[in-house]
Design a protein around this nucleic acid. Sequence first.
DNA 1: ATGAAAGCGCTAACAG
DNA 2: CTGTTAGCGCTTTCAT
Lengths: 340, 340
Amino acid sequence: MPAASVGDVRSVTMADVAREAGVSRQLVSLVLREVGYVSEEKRELVLRTAEQLGYRRNALATSLASRRTNSIGLAIFDLHNQVYADFADGVLDVIQPAGFQLLLSTNTRDQKSIAAAVESLIGLRADGLLLATHIPGELNLARLLAGTPTVTIGEDPDIERVDAVHGDDRLGAYQATRHLLGQGHRDIVYIAGPPTQQNTGRSSGYAEAMAEASLPTRVVEGDATEAGGERALLEMRRSEALPTAVLCYNDSTAFGALSCAQRERLRVPNDLAIVGYDNTRAASYPGVDLTSIDQQARAMGAHAAELLLERIADPARAAEKLTLAPQLILRGSSSFYRGT
Amino acid sequence: MPAASVGDVRSVTMADVAREAGVSRQLVSLVLREVGYVSEEKRELVLRTAEQLGYRRNALATSLASRRTNSIGLAIFDLHNQVYADFADGVLDVIQPAGFQLLLSTNTRDQKSIAAAVESLIGLRADGLLLATHIPGELNLARLLAGTPTVTIGEDPDIERVDAVHGDDRLGAYQATRHLLGQGHRDIVYIAGPPTQQNTGRSSGYAEAMAEASLPTRVVEGDATEAGGERALLEMRRSEALPTAVLCYNDSTAFGALSCAQRERLRVPNDLAIVGYDNTRAASYPGVDLTSIDQQARAMGAHAAELLLERIADPARAAEKLTLAPQLILRGSSSFYRGT
DNA sequence: ATGAAAGCGCTAACAG
DNA sequence: CTGTTAGCGCTTTCAT
């Protein structure tokens, strides 16, 4: 009778392969792990019968026994936000060649689910964590991590042994504001985002540039969404307090502002100049043509991944902080001299 | 001497908690799993000392022992594509309340990495798989899955016991083409995508509508990217073979076509009408204003997740196929009667 | 409620 | 190259 193939097909085990091939279980392990010397003959025999039996190595058991998962966990806030996808791309660029797998965990902005995401990633015993999400101060991240090698992206929680990679938000917003000032604007509003470090940085860069020009600042609330940008602009319009230019916390906010401007028949940039932040794909679409600040998200992801691999190798070393320079991308939404 | 807290902080185990709390290891397990009756007193004691010791349940060991991971794997093609993010959202809507965790795996379009993604998800022993990616015919998916409960999204590989959720691509493209015909267009080109089932469906819907109107079809190649859309349009322009309208495989392609049209000083929709597919966020941006077909990606993800949960519960049942109706969203890029 | 015993599928260390 | 002995951290079953 041939070996019956009924039942749970997934439970083919190393022992099964060994038995079928007539070799020791260890030999199978050696072959599959590609370590040590195994005669070509046996190698092929093992590989062939494994293939034949439909054997798949149980990563759970492997990791449990070897105490390493070769995976790194990435906590991301919102899959829809291009910036996070860019982070992820950069991370993959680095970790895949190094033989690590990515465990992606999405979480919403509230504190509980961030904690849940981290818990889950640690529960999976990821070798290291990448946090590309806002970290509320009340979270006690240090305690949550309990020593897991971690690198943050975009924010710096300033915890011992936690590296951080971020853009220079202050500088980015400063440059953008200077650009608007250079275009002759005096009345410039900053449509803020949620109270994150990034918002703080961008806000202060804006304030600094305005102060240098001896101009008063004006900040209105937003929430990093299109709806928020629309609402913010509409309110100013209603209260007849429209500025001549707005600097937005991010591109989404700017897209909302653009929508509102169009609906209100405001000409951009003539009646209102608009600048975003992130330089997402859509910023360059014809008809959108949004001036924005590129914070090199992909590079940030890659650098963060590199730092993490180093930290995994040497968990005790001092925390490293990396800041990437932002780049102002000029487009039609803020400039009277439109390029093609 | 207090228990030293040096060394690998993560290796607090159930046995440690039990010892510290002065109870049995099984009791700890019971409390943590929230099953059976445990006196409130002991419950709290266990929970407290676990918290104190910074204990985290090892998901690997748990899964290995219990033979279920409570996780479902989602293979996605491209994080940057909004449609996939929508799928993921829908999936999360369903599986999170059900107590399942999402394992996200990104892969590129080539056959090898799709196989790798599936292998990896199976290796992690995901309880079920969701495949939101093109499945090449040569892949022998059935063999690869080896019985793992699976639902595909967007394509139907037609494998026994594999459920599929997809949009009615033929109908979507048919409606879009009819719309263009209704606008008076006779010369309509379809800018195709890669050879996927979705492309086949959209292509035939287009052909059907054209045939009904006794008009010849014209299909040019694209690759589902902006660059592809740009290239396709530019080539027609160069060879003086511009149609009056183009139907694009997806929104990305359409955005590329829009860029090209603008650069070539073509007025949209007067000189050229453009229709996309997917109804992504950016389609509704002011200045883009792209007519597109909404395929209800989020709902597709949710339905797929529901089917998967059912299949996990009953792996033997017959495959179910679900088709969601597409919806044409009219915007300025295709219509002379522009709204708002 | 607890304890004992067995086992999930694998790696690791070492003697042969 | 093979076999043995351990053990990873947890669940499960059964008896107490």
